[in-house]
Design a protein around this nucleic acid. Structure first.
Length: 654
DNA sequence: ATAGGGTTAG
């Protein structure tokens, strides 16, 4: 980019301001002699108008106050005029022509007058105009203040314009002074961080003569967003005083990096330190809960939210987070209750609710809610469409899904992205329309990616289509040769089709590549909300022996009802007896055994699994719900399965 | 004037 600072550099006259223009008064009234007593009076008036401006709630009101300012003879008073400009900016009034003209009418503007306008231009995206006004300010002999500099850095950060930011950083270094300012330093750190230059941000941080909580928090958040929680923890530990914002940054950081337990741990730490909680904190904690699927913890956090005055009726952020949490904890009914009592609903609330319906297999409700949403002022976004497409896909509503997809294409605001194509491929694939799916992939405007081929491979598993699976897997292996899940999925498809030679070929391939399978893991919430983790084939749980016994007893009963182990779900080169043993040691079965052993007959069993549940476990759970009379809810990495009286809410279609 | 914000497939 060509430097737009040329003008500025030429006009530079740092810190040599003509005395008559800057005699220390922000009023700009000193061009005529005013006695001290009157000056005090004017200061009071200024402050009064300032607070009136603050309380204005519309542009019309602001204009009325402006007229009043003129009437009172304060039309040269930059203190109030700059405030007026900032308020106009807040109400999104374009800087040209009205707020800009206020400056033209002032004989002796001060830095705040200029800065407020520069900031206005920056916020409204007029970089060029703000820079030229900055140049004009220098030519008038008025030096920028810290506020001016922060406005620039903030804009560079928002526009991700690191080139301009660096140039500007270089400029102010030459003049000195500003880099000592803590506001400037903090904004500078944030600018580099937002542009992805974390190391530069860190350097500014290290070189700052003084740091405050905000400097630390900015950097903590930066590391957390990068996924480097170790560095975040290290900084957090060094913080002498930890406030609500810094603590929230840690909680949210862990939640966003898939470490929900640590998030809850920090939240508890925060409470024991007596740090306050607000809706932002709650949003992070609730999101962590949603990931854990911890229903008991969830109801506790709901209480905390209500008690701190941020219940779903009062806070749209907390409400939306709760909808997501309840649906991910297995209770779509509770999620809908929250949705109903919310007084304000935004696109997050609707999207979360629609997705909640979708993952619980309530496609009709999802579509009805989407259509209801179209009648409101809340505009659907890319996520909302993804949610409604997912709902169609799980229910096999092909035509309806295609209609929603076309609706997206017609809306210029949200053209279908990769994810939406993947969803549509999934929709067609599940319906067994492989040719249409392949055609769609061929004609999509962006390069085909892991998403669409992954969706196709998943559909091949449902319909046992090894031929198309080979095509999809071929692309996936090329795109991501080390993603072990794709090899496993292909081997399962071969196994289902009885192509055992191909199964062992793929297994050999996995071995020679040195890939390690992601271990399957199931979580359950036991008594007092204690979370128990089970890995497949894992004997480390203290009750292992009893669990095994319980499961053997159950297996015996299920076999009498006609259940047969599905050996293709264990695609290994081993004997049938070993396959049966492997299947019985799947993590979700262990978790089920534990829950049967330790919970009341009337309670619902909830299991959260990190991988997709296999077909054998699925039919095992169906039968188990019949034989034991227990309701079993499994959340796998895709969706929920409600097993009751021998059937599953997904209709064996997942 | 500067820091923390909830929803994303298979």
């Amino acid at each position: 980019m060509v430097s737009i600072f040329k003008e500025v550099i030429r006009a530079t006259r740092p810190f040599s301001i003509p005395i008559e223009k800057s005699c220390g008064s922000s009023t700009g009234l000193l061009k005529t002699f005013i006695p001290f007593s009157q000056l005090q009076e004017i200061k009071l008036l200024e402050q009064k108008i300032n607070s009136i401006l603050d309380s204005c709630i519309s542009v019309t009101q602001l204009k009325q106050v402006h007229a009043q300012i003129v009437r009172k003879g304060l039309d040269q008073c930059c203190f109030v005029l700059a405030k007026l400009v900032r308020m106009l900016t807040k109400f999104e009034v374009p800087m040209d022509p009205y707020p800009r003209n206020i400056l033209s009418q002032v004989h002796f503007a001060n830095p705040f007058m200029y800065t407020s306008l520069i900031r206005g231009y920056l916020i409204q995206g007029s970089f060029e105009k703000s820079v030229s006004l900055y140049g004009e300010m220098w030519r008038e002999g008025i030096s920028p203040v810290s506020f001016t500099i922060t406005a620039f850095f903030k804009a560079c950060g928002a526009e991700l314009n690191v080139d301009l930011g660096r140039q500007f950083h270089g400029q102010i270094m030459k003049f000195g002074g500003f880099t000592q300012d803590i506001y400037v330093g903090n904004t500078l750190i944030d600018m580099y961080v937002k542009c992805g230059w974390l190391d530069c941000g860190r350097q500014v941080f290290d070189e700052m003569p003084e740091r405050d909580l905000i400097s630390w928090t900015t950097l903590i958040v930066a590391y957390a967003k990068r996924g480097n929680m170790l560095a975040a923890v290290e900084l957090f530990d060094r913080l002498p005083v930890k406030d609500m914002v810094a603590c929230t940054a840690m909680v949210t950081g862990f939640a966003q990096n898939g470490q929900p337990r640590e998030a809850l741990e920090y939240f508890e730490k925060m409470q024991s330190m007596g740090v306050d909680t607000d809706e932002v904190t709650l949003a992070g904690v609730i999101s962590a809960c949603a990931q854990l699927g911890a229903a008991k913890y969830a109801s506790w956090i709901r209480d905390v939210a209500e008690k701190s005055g941020f219940g779903p009726a009062d806070s749209v952020v907390v409400g939306s987070a709760l909808i997501d949490m309840y649906s991910k904890c297995g209770s779509v009914e509770e999620a809908y209750n929250v949705f109903i009592i919310m007084r304000v609903r935004n696109v997050f609330s609707y999207s979360s609710m629609i997705l909640g319906f979708a993952i619980h297999g309530c496609a009709k409700e999802a579509i009805a809610l989407f259509e209801e949403m179209l009648k409101t002022d809340v505009k659907p976004n890319a996520v909302t469409f993804l949610a409604v497409l997912t709902a169609c896909s799980h229910a096999g509503f092909v035509e309806q899904g295609q209609q929603f997809f076309e609706m997206m294409e017609k809306r210029s605001c949200c053209a279908p992205q990769e994810d939406h194509y993947a969803c549509l491929v999934d929709l067609l694939g599940r319906a067994g329309r492989f040719e249409d799916a392949l055609e769609l992939i061929k004609t999509m405007p962006m390069k085909s990616n892991g998403g669409v081929w992954g969706a196709l491979l998943g559909a091949c598993r449902i319909h046992v289509n090894p031929d198309v699976a080979e095509i999809a897997a071929g692309h996936l292996f090329e795109l991501d040769p080390n993603h072990v899940g794709n090899y496993v999925l292909l081997s399962i498809i071969y196994a289902s089709a009885g192509r055992w030679k191909d199964v062992s070929r793929i297994r050999k391939l996995i071995r020679t590549k040195g890939l390690i399978k992601n271990p399957a893991c199931s979580l359950v919430e036991g008594e007092k909300g204690v979370i128990h983790e089970f890995y497949s084939d894992d004997l480390t749980h203290p009750k292992s022996a009893e669990i095994r016994e319980e499961l053997q007893g159950l297996l015996h009963k299920l076999k009498l009802q006609g259940y047969q182990p599905l050996l293709s779900s264990a695609p290994y080169d081993v004997s049938d007896e070993d396959k049966k043993r492997i299947l019985m040691a799947h993590s979700e079965k262990l978790a089920l055994g534990y829950m049967l052993l330790t919970t009341d007959a009337g309670s619902v069993i909830r299991i959260i699994k990190n991988l997709r549940t296999c077909e054998d476990c699925h039919s095992f759970m169906c039968a188990a719900s019949q034989v034991t009379g227990r309701e079993i809810i499994i959340r796998d990495n895709m969706r929920f399965h409600h097993f009751q009286n021998g059937t599953c809410s997904c209709n064996n279609f997942w």
